[in-house]
Design a binder for these strands. Sequence first.
RNA 1: GCCGGGAUGGCGGAACUGGUAGACGCACCAGACUCAAAAUCUGGCGCCUGCAAGGGCGUGCCGGUUCGAUUCCGGCUCUCGGUACCA
Length: 897
Amino acid sequence: MNSAYQPKQIEIAAQTEWTRTDIYRVTENATGKDGKPKPKFYACSMLPYPSGKLHMGHVRNYTINDMMARQLRMKGYNVLQPMGWDAFGLPAENAAMKNNVAPAKWTRENIAYMKKQCQAMGWAIDWSREFATCDPEYYKWNQWFFLKMLEKGIVYKKTQVVNWDPVDMTVLANEQVVDGKGWRSGAPVEKREIPGYYMAITKYADELLDCVANKLTGWPASVRAMQENWIGKSVGVRFAFLHTIRDSESPTTPSPLGEGRDEGSGQSDQVQEGKLFVFTTRADTIMGVTFCAVAAEHPLAIIAATSNPNVAAFIEETKRGTVMEADMATMEKKGVATGLYVTHPLTGDKVEVWVGNYVLMSYGDGAVMGVPGHDERDFEFAKKYGLPIKQVVDTGKAYSTDAWQAHYGDHGSCIESGPMTDMTFDAAINYVAAQTAENGGEKKTQYRLRDWGISRQRYWGTPIPIIHCTDCGDVPVPYEDLPVKLPLDLIPDGSGSPLKKDAAFLNCACPKCGKAATRESDTMDTFVDSSWYYMRYTSPNTALDYHDKMVSSCNDYWMPMDQYIGGISHAVLHLLYARFWTKAMRDLGMLKFDEPFTNLLCQGMVLNYIFYRKGEKGGIEYFAPDDVEPVMDAVGKPVRYRLRVDGSPVDYDGVGTMSKSKLNGVDPQDMIDTYGADAARLFVMFSSPPEQTIEWSSGGVHATNRYLHRLWTFCAAVSDATRSASEVESSKLDVDAKKMRHDIHATLKQASYDYSRLQYNTVVSACMKMLNTLEENRHAPPSVVREGVSILLRVLYPACPHVTWQLWNELDFANQWGDLVDAPWPEPDPAALEQDEIEMVVQVNGKLRGSIRVPKAATKEMIEQMAITDVGVARHTEGKPIKRLIVVPGKLVNVVI
RNA sequence: GCCGGGAUGGCGGAACUGGUAGACGCACCAGACUCAAAAUCUGGCGCCUGCAAGGGCGUGCCGGUUCGAUUCCGGCUCUCGGUACCA
């Protein structure tokens, strides 16, 4: 065999052979060597956005997936590992504007390049199942399912609030808002209400929550907690303050927000005449109400604004700014009195209505009762505007209205509460619900979760299959006319969707009356695409029912998915939408299971430095870290940064996830070109455990490269001597050979355990230890060396499939065990793990003072005797009485004095 | 703001259920080989102290539980992810 490791040559040869034999293609009827069906294992990663090049997050994600898939295949599973492209989305439109190229062309070219990179990485992907979400064959089913959900009432239309750029005259994504300003225009962003389609995920709130607790046992606890908190179930009372307020301009109460409301959130009758409904989890504090606060969009606020200029001005002011929750929650709490009064349902007192910017229209009824005595936000608000603060709950601790204290929000017993005085929390809640029942009051469950708005005023997405007819209204596109195809040659210009200006797309006939009509120009949120793509993979396009069904019959074999892998950034939105979508498909009779992902691994983010500069108009421009260099002070600490090309200054914005928009992604191609895919894969796996965030640094790739060179050189050196070595006979080995076998098998045991808990960085450590052991014992009996090499190659193979595959063949293991891809996973030999003597450490008062070697069969008394007579221990115990002796078998002795 | 993570040598990280802190590597230092460099090989490497044997300190900060705490509990700091139109 060649004496030098040549990664390029080896990797191309291996990949060529794998492609020739189509070795990673899987079917639903695979059988093992015993003729029995193999158990299936579906291991899938979140699909990449084709931004141009793979970045390190992709390499990490798909190598984790690949290690799992390859190891489980060796363990006898029928493993599916597919790949596809999340091809719709904003970055394609940005690239189109920047380079004057159509999103379709840009996307397709990126996919072609990134697919080559995937293949060069040697991932064991079944490419026969590949597709892109911008394929009409795929997004047709987004449209089909949208219409099915519309029929079922899961899809409905209402208004939505969006970020509006008044200069570019366009809707902005949250990401396109920087410091409250449009990213291109630099103009302050405003809120604007427009119509849109919604999916009623809140109808499933209870089931989604219940399954988090009872079915998602293979998910990380942190993700389950995040989903629970996101759904945010709270139990309380919804009741009304009565009033006689009327809009002076119209006889009936207006509904400025128009058509529907989130039915699941129970917001259907908030504008009911004469009643101001509020929801509260603290009905026990109802006697402490000193004001009511409504959102700026609330009907009472709108009515007040017609006659009160202060209110009108305040409502106008709240329109400034963005729709982002982080902005809403951190801004200064402000309000204005309306001069309107409602009646307290229990006391009959007059309570003034305020408009507050901290009241969210999207939660509950868009109105709250103000109890400054026991709610921190209300307390702040009351202090600011001089409203009365009244204590009505005794928490057993001192109370003063001077400053808020955490215990004011605790449960206790009611005081100064008239008929409710001395009531417990539960009694008070029941009492309020009963007393307000006559006017619609009731105990109620409220969710923080909102329905999913899917309409986007953008070009590069799935067209929403609706036709607007002046006579018939909104008409669904007939199923036989699907897909509504997206034109491929448009180039956006930054001022609204180009679909709105494309007559060929827009103009059509109404399916109902045949008159001229207009297509809906909004497209779907890309989370729609990612809500079910993993089921389309299971339906290979060779399947008979692939073209006329959303998912083929093969989906029943592969789903639910055994292991899903992806970034922690998707812990809530994507993973919640996918769960909802699955339940909706189930309810349409398409699936037999409730949850799509049995086990979930959330890999940590790969972070890199972020550099930017503010443009003249106020917009922001990002720079790639590779194009930036630091300027050092005398001590060698970076004080500022500049562009390499012209020395102009740029600002440093800390570290953050690698993203297309921030230009801080790192292309792995240089690493692959210099060291090969195996070294790159090994480096990424070695550098940290899968779930941990990593700050990118490339220093260290050459270490894994060095390791693979050492491995090759070692195998070449022992090749001739060990090729025809016999089986190990453990009883005939000398002490050194036994020790070597023990080390190899103990390390194998550890590595197998680490594979099972997906801790791949220590698997790599184990491989390094094994090579160290082999090198130190290169003159051991050939049978023992050969066994050691056979174990090392199989443990390393899932991480470095090319070099190990080549060595496996070179050393003639293939004849013995078969192709490495399907070779049996090695098991540690119990005989090799046996040890005659065990080393135990001895502590004095918990501090390490010595160590003893004890026979395997030593009794507790023998161990204690050896421990207290140890020299290092005696030095510290001299002259002091021993109070206690703690023996942890096989580990340590602690002498307490 | 709210929800969920994280913090261990100069650096990446290890330590499985409360039981030897720093495995495995990187960087660095010294030596070997070389005309020289690279590569490779050997040894050293938490901090302070000591000629050494040894001793003291040490897992973001403050406190607690325990024979024993990186690990459990309470309170902080900084940082990362998400926050519903980035994907």
